[in-house]
């Protein structure tokens, strides 16, 4: 059983705290993405799990056994490095074969595994070449193939598809998911591409500033972000945050009334742009549209609601002129309410 328990991991580089107490449990065979902006500590966390970096505090357990103090090679994992680390002095074939050679696998098995991994990542044409002459995307796929070839119980991938063009990335993503699922590989996948994380993951851990802000299924994280940061980071356009007055535990939006988890004062409405509908005249929450952009599949409106910047999406069949005011109807089941003080969301209403 290769489940991974990350228990309150902290890491400081001198006075700088890169990880401020990260805890995360990944079940056997699960695919978890670490999603977060540049510099938030994703690579650092991965390197600590791999044993390439020591943590300042905390524990990492793989298969119920603490691996702190174990050498990387004794942790039973493979890794795809953010900068590939494909060996320049070996052919692509020998690169992919490297892990198996270290395990003293016989030539027949090496050949079989290399061909399988190479086939999956479409790098068969380059097997005899040296990485030096390959493009970034090709090298990246060599790095992924090298990790897959050993059929690891745990696979750590640091932005493994970041250099591929959109089409190839989509294809690789699907194939990776399939093969890892079939093999039952426990996977931690680092990315700052939210579409990739949404599409691939069983669960997403959103990392921000050395902390995990939220862990959940893609749908949970998308619909009910735990914090303002998560809502703003995930989704395109990002979630809108509109501060609204509360009277007697209720918020009024046009003709609609919502019971909110606050009695008075103010509350922040977290509104996904595509959950609104155009309201009949005079009945909606008013939005002053500055720019209306027909995107083909939908209509993107940029403007303000209650004087606060907002972006919403309407069906492509709607027509809105720049400068017009449109009324919006909200979907009560898809609203998130957040505290104006600390930006933490209230639990979703049952």
């Amino acid at each position: 059983m290769a489940n991974i328990v990350i228990d309150n991991i902290k890491k400081s580089f001198g006075a700088f705290q890169a990880l401020k107490g990260v805890s995360l449990t990944i079940n056997d065979g699960e695919f978890v993405s670490l999603l977060g902006p540049s510099g938030c500590g994703k690579t650092t966390l991965l390197r600590i799990i791999a044993g390439l970096e020591t943590s300042t505090a905390g524990d990492v357990r793989i298969g119920e056994k603490s691996v702190i103090g174990l050498l990387p090679k004794d942790r039973g994992l493979a890794m795809v490095f953010q900068n590939y680390a494909v060996f320049p002095h070996m052919t692509v074939y020998e690169n992919v074969a490297f892990g198996l050679r270290m395990q003293k696998a016989d030539d027949a098995r090496v050949k079989k595994q290399v061909e399988k991994a190479a086939g999956l990542l479409h790098i068969e044409p380059y097997l005899d070449r040296y990485p030096n002459k390959l493009s970034g995307g090709q090298r990246q796929r060599v790095a992924v193939a090298r990790a897959l070839a050993v059929e690891p119980g745990v696979l750590l991938m640091d932005e493994p598809l970041s250099n591929l063009d959109a089409l190839l990335r989509l294809e690789m993503r699907t194939e990776l998911k399939t093969v890892l699922q079939e093999a039952g590989t426990t996977t931690i996948y680092v990315t700052h591409d939210q579409t990739e994380a949404m599409g691939l993951s069983d669960r997403i851990a959103v990392v921000h500033d050395g902390r995990i802000e939220q862990v959940g299924t893609p749908v949970e994280v998308y619909n009910h972000p735990a914090t303002r940061f998560v809502g703003g980071f995930i989704g395109n356009p990002p979630m809108n945050f509109i501060t609204m007055p509360v009277t007697g535990g209720q918020v009024t939006a046009g003709a609609q009334q919502f019971a909110v988890p606050a009695q008075g004062g103010e509350i922040v409405l977290g509104l996904r742009g595509e959950t609104v509908e155009r309201a009949p005249t005079g009945q909606g929450l008013d939005m002053q549209v500055r720019v209306a952009e027909p995107m083909g599949s939908h209509l993107l409106l940029t403007g303000s609601i209650l004087g606060q910047p907002a972006r919403v999406i309407l069906p492509a069949t709607e027509t809105v002129r720049n400068g017009e005011t449109v009324g919006l109807t909200l979907d009560p089941k898809r609203l998130t309410w957040l505290s104006p003080e600390n930006g933490v969301s209230y639990p979703a209403a049952a």
Binding site: L52, K73, L77, R146
Partner: peptide
Amino acid sequence: VPKEFKEAAEIFGASPWT
């Protein structure tokens, strides 16, 4: 020599001498 080359080798089971 970038340290990632040695680290990658280490992950895939190479001893210090290897």
